[in-house]
Nucleic acid binder design. Structure first.
Lengths: 338, 338
DNA sequence: TGCGAAAATGTAACTGGTTACAAGTTTTTC
DNA sequence: GAAAAACTTGTAACCAGTTACATTTTCGCA
């Protein structure tokens, strides 16, 4: 007969008592059953079953000093932009036996800091943060705790933390050069919020620097298909004659694409359209969307490898640069057939 | 002078020794600084700073018995389908001081079980699982450990766990009734994988039961814009004259939409198109997509509330049914203007 | 049958915090 | 100026596991 322990969760000592063995033996049944005799093994296992005993993760962690998970702080889950990244990140972390906690920051440095602190409090072994602009408090916390932390979406070897990302300047140049090469003179740029988003700010800045004789006008929108469509409508209604709309996110470009179709504008004859990110869906739109491939899934994989290695072998990784690639498709090229 | 402790991370006892106080006092500095005298407080805090001391989350958890996070097992992060759900889930959990760990299962019950076990091992206080078909081992584990667990995407009050989701049968009926009402006789249905996905199987089954005089043909595709477009191409090339394409996911519908546009098919005159889920983007497509709103964000919020309450107050929640709503837009209605 | 080695198990210290209770100090009150 | 009250701090037990080391049991073989 086993002792019933009120409503409290049974612990290792309860199991030991109920099965008439020492705590060490119960621990062995759990972790190295091969060294326990057949007879004891089955007896203890039956008691474990009876008492519905589940070892406490915290108590285990206290001994191993490991929690086996890392936290990722990303701006939002609300659209597909981070889907590919998270997919790559999660699957690669899993390969190192690490789990992933996702927290969203809404691009607010204060929220980011608060959530980072929470992640630390619950024992995260590493952190992924987006971009290289963060609150002082966050920077200090990372510095103080020496927590392995990687900044993504922004390649910058000068940054005080390792970065894994694309060169935002280069990707902006690739975009404007391509539009220049097909003869665009006046370009409307739709981009996401610049407040607290260094990726967007940097891209916009680099477009500006490389404009040359091209006239650029900027339109800021939330990152959503709906906002992309709305901004495109504004742009079309503005009276100016634009050669192209450049969207600094494929999500925005998809929205703009729908609006152009709605207004019966021929693409690219009347208006070229270009995105950035190259979401998987962009190759299937009508017309197919030209975009700068930022390799977000690869970024996830690279970030996971770097972080796992840092945690496992205490080697601080080097920054990793993902080469942006131009994928020319129908929204900027006349001759391309299906 | 403070004692340097090799490379080992400093712990509470180190701090106590270095600042000449007891461990209790250090603990107080951390948790209730107000009861500690000014002098001691600053002294201890300086030592904490010097030794870069960070309290161990595991050691804290062992006392409180709390880990403060729950795990969500979802099929994939690869497309936008779960974005809204996760967004709702995460934000509502945060309101209860709970964090979210996301793990993907790829709709494989074995992977699902393995990841659930891992989540349990690292101390998850609750679990979200997708649908109501799971491996025996997972069911047994949940039963054994009494871990608060909620099944989403499938409302079924009979299920042995609380469910939070839409009525998959009702949503299928809503879809087919709408298409019947606009006079469709032959409908091509594009749906996601049915293997290990009870949501899809149930919807397909219910379409079948309610077909009446309508001829239905089914096309299975991976859930992606690309696959949706590819299947639509197959359907258009099949020679049969279809009245409508019904996609059991808006992601598929978006792909089909692009393919119809590509082939210059008038929507809805030549072919009606309908989706399911009602992603935020569906209201902005061209033409705007008719869809059955499954309220996935609300599902996230409801699941989070139910789970948090279960964890906090040990009350097993009731199942929650989200009412699917038909959003009629241009892809099935001639008269609707922008 | 008896001895040594191998196998199985137990004891108790340890992980890094929290906290009940006790004890020592300072401040207040009469 | 002494007793009472309030404030600080310390001691040691406790949380739920793991594990080094000691001890007991079992077994093979001369």
């Amino acid at each position: 007969m086993t002792t019933r322990i009120g409503k409290r969760r049974a612990n290792l000592r309860d199991v030991a008592k109920a099965s008439g063995v020492s705590v060490a033996t119960v621990s062995r049944v759990l972790n190295s059953p091969s060294v326990v005799s057949e007879k004891t093994l089955t007896r203890v296992q039956r008691v474990i079953e009876e008492l519905r005993f589940t070892p406490s993760a915290a108590a285990r962690a206290i001994n191993s000093g490991r929690s086996r998970f890392v936290g990722a702080l990303i701006p939002t889950l609300d659209n597909a932009i981070f889907a590919g990244f998270l997919e790559g990140l999660e699957s690669q972390l899993a390969a190192s036996g690490l789990s992933l906690i996702v927290a969203t920051t809404n691009d607010d440095p204060e929220i980011e800091f608060a959530k980072a602190q929470e992640l630390l409090n619950i024992g995260a072994e590493g952190l992924i943060i987006s971009g290289i602009s963060h609150s002082q408090s966050l920077e200090k916390m990372v510095e103080r705790t020496q927590l392995p932390t990687i900044a993504i979406s922004y390649f910058d070897p000068q940054y005080h933390l390792p970065t894994v990302g694309y060169d935002n300047r280069a990707s902006a140049r690739i975009a404007i050069e391509h539009l220049r090469s097909i003869g665009c003179q006046r370009i409307a740029v739709i981009h996401g919020p610049t407040l607290n988003n260094d990726r967007t700010r940097t891209r916009v800045d680099e477009l500006h620097r490389n404009a040359g004789s091209i006239a650029l006008e900027y339109f800021e929108a939330d990152i959503s298909v709906q906002s992309g469509a709305a901004k495109a409508k504004t742009i079309l209604a503005s009276g100016t004659r634009w050669d192209a709309i450049l969207c600094l996110s494929d999500v925005l470009a998809t929205g703009a694409l729908f609006e152009l179709l709605r207004q019966n504008i021929r693409i690219p004859e009347d208006m070229a359209l270009m995105g950035m990110e190259d979401l998987p869906s962009s190759a299937s739109t009508y017309p197919r969307l030209t975009s700068v491939d930022l390799q977000v899934r690869e970024m996830g994989i690279a970030a996971a490898s770097a972080l796992a290695n840092w945690i496992e072998h205490h080697e601080r990784p080097e920054s990793v640069k993902l080469e942006a690639r131009l994928n020319i498709r129908q929204t900027t090229a006349l001759r391309l057939k299906d």
